[in-house]
């Protein structure tokens, strides 16, 4: 298949992909306190790869992914389930939020909880869903 898109688009896609990806991670991380979260982060990360797939092709974009789209989907759902089940192990009802604070060196504190893990699962699942759908549609010839 010859290249129907301009080089500018390709270069932009190449440069934007890691940028958007890192941005999506930031959005995911701070989502519990500030605007953002798993859905928005997932949408951004997926956009990065969709842009790449449009500029090149879906096979190329799939290669850039650390996991296959279906594995992302499955991992996402598994993370969601695990985050819910952790509280069951502690004897609480399914999906009770549990929090812990890690004390990092230099006086930093990291506040972690199962809802954050849940959000990460949503993030992965959204990426998986979007990329499965979009890559398959881009593949239509």
């Amino acid at each position: 298949m010859s290249n129907p898109y301009s080089n500018i688009f390709r270069i932009a896609a190449t440069k934007l992909r890691p940028l958007l990806f890192i941005l999506s991670l930031i959005v995911l991380y701070r989502g519990h306190q500030q605007p953002g979260g798993g859905f928005i982060g997932g949408l951004m990360a997926a956009s990065a790869y969709i842009l790449y797939a449009l500029a090149f092709n879906s096979a190329e974009a799939r290669r850039k992914l650390p996991l296959s789209t279906s594995a992302l989907l499955g991992t996402g759902l598994a993370v969601i389930l695990v985050s819910g089940l952790l509280s069951v192990l502690a004897g609480e009802p399914f999906m009770t939020g549990m929090w812990t604070t890690l004390h990092l060196p230099f006086g930093q504190e990291l506040h972690l909880g199962t809802p954050v893990l849940f959000d990460a699962g949503v993030y992965l699942a959204v990426i998986g869903v979007l990329l499965t759908i979009m890559f398959d549609i881009i593949d239509i010839e």
């Binding site: 859905f39 949408l43 959204v126 869903v129 979007l130 759908i133 549609i137």
Partner: peptide, 11 residues
């Protein structure tokens, strides 16, 4: 987000 899934499937 669900709407997106539905639209994609319908398309």
């Amino acid at each position: 987000v669900i709407g997106f899934g539905i639209t994609a499937f319908a398309l």
